[in-house]
């Protein structure tokens, strides 16, 4: 990844900042002048990963553009908890239209700015996994193939949380949702379904695709920075644990993001023009159990009727990712 080398050995660039570091080396989130594009008073649940991911991403955009960016938002949790009348939590110019059209709306915003000769103002669009991989998929694919000058953030919490935790095309195998209940012979979400949006994005040949997660703040910011250097369609898929939907402790949100990355279940990588260019190496590899056991949506894999085969099958997904995206450091 394009993280900076930090001449500081206490925590290096793993923490958000440090009193010993130059602010230039610190994450935007650690600075006093951070934009707080998503400000306090929003109605996200305690420990909301999406609120965090959105602030991380948009604050970085605002830093890089000198506060000159417009944000288009799909319907979903993020939209609902930030802009219920009469209060908005956004400090940025922000537009919401529908669930399935955010990429197209963003295209329209970008087109308008071009027509107005204000191409220095940058456009980002954002939505949850439902709007991104399901209902807004067509619009997103269109935005990609036209290479419209929009950076799209997908905040992936792996189900339709706003409507009460129903399965989406991004719901992982075996996860319990309201529409993939723990019932019948194969409880939870079936294996062999769902789509890998970052790979689909790459298949469009767009200039930049990356995955990021809220536990790897500097990596996330570096990817936003990379994306903002480029014009055209760009896609960053951010993993945002959801305490409500996953049945996890609010305090564990960042930890879960970390475990997803460190188990290999959520690979962190970058791709340019359809080819993987880099991946973040796992630092402290953990078996998938470490990640799964903190979430009640996987409770059926543990306890009295523990499902070792199920866990092994999920481990296999992680192992495949590790191989496919070269997530382990090569032996020296």
């Amino acid at each position: 990844m394009t993280t900076s080398t930090v001449e500081f050995h206490q925590t290096g660039d793993l923490t958000a900042g440090n009193r010993l570091q130059d602010e230039q080396q610190a994450s935007r989130q650690s600075t006093q002048q951070r934009f707080n594009s998503l400000t306090a008073g929003h109605r996200a649940c305690q420990g909301c990963g999406e609120a965090l991911g959105a602030r991380f991403a948009i604050d970085k955009v605002m830093e890089l553009t000198g506060d000159r960016a417009f944000v288009v938002n799909a319907t979903g949790c993020l939209e609902v908890f930030t802009t219920p009348f009469p209060e908005s939590s956004w400090n940025v110019p922000w537009l919401h239209s529908l669930f399935g059209n955010a990429p197209a709306v963003a295209t329209g915003v970008a087109a308008a700015l071009r027509a107005q000769g204000k191409s220095d103002i940058r456009v980002v669009a954002q939505g949850g996994d439902g709007s991104t991989v399901d209902i807004g998929f067509g619009a997103l694919s269109g935005m990609f193939e036209r290479n419209d000058d929009v950076l799209y953030f997908c905040y992936d919490n792996e189900a339709y949380m706003n409507t009460g935790v129903q399965r989406s095309g991004a719901t992982p195998p075996m996860a319990r949702t309201a529409t993939t209940p723990i019932a019948g012979a194969n409880p939870g979400n079936p294996f062999g379904q769902g789509k890998n949006m970052p790979l689909i994005a790459m298949a469009h040949g767009i200039p930049y695709v990356a995955t990021a997660t809220i536990s790897h703040l500097r990596d996330l910011e570096a990817k936003v920075a990379k994306a903002m250097e480029i014009r055209g369609a760009r896609y960053i898929h951010i993993h945002v644990p959801c305490p409500l939907g996953w049945g996890s402790e609010p305090a564990d949100t960042v930890k879960l993001a970390r475990l997803a990355a460190e188990s290999g279940l959520f690979p962190l990588f970058e791709a340019e023009h359809g080819e993987v260019t880099d991946s973040s190496k796992i630092r402290r590899q953990v078996p998938v159990e470490e990640y799964l056991k903190l979430q009640r949506r996987y409770a059926h894999l543990f306890g009295k009727s523990a499902d070792a085969e199920g866990i092994a099958a999920i481990q296999k997904i992680a192992d495949t990712n590790i191989r496919r995206f070269k997530l382990l450091r090569e032996e020296e």
Partner: peptide, 20 residues
């Protein structure tokens, strides 16, 4: 702007109009 559907076509117009 050439788009992939009428839904997108009007959505692009929404974005443009909301941008003034």
């Amino acid at each position: 702007v050439n788009v992939e559907s009428e839904f997108a076509a009007l959505s692009v117009c929404i974005g443009a109009s909301a941008s003034g």
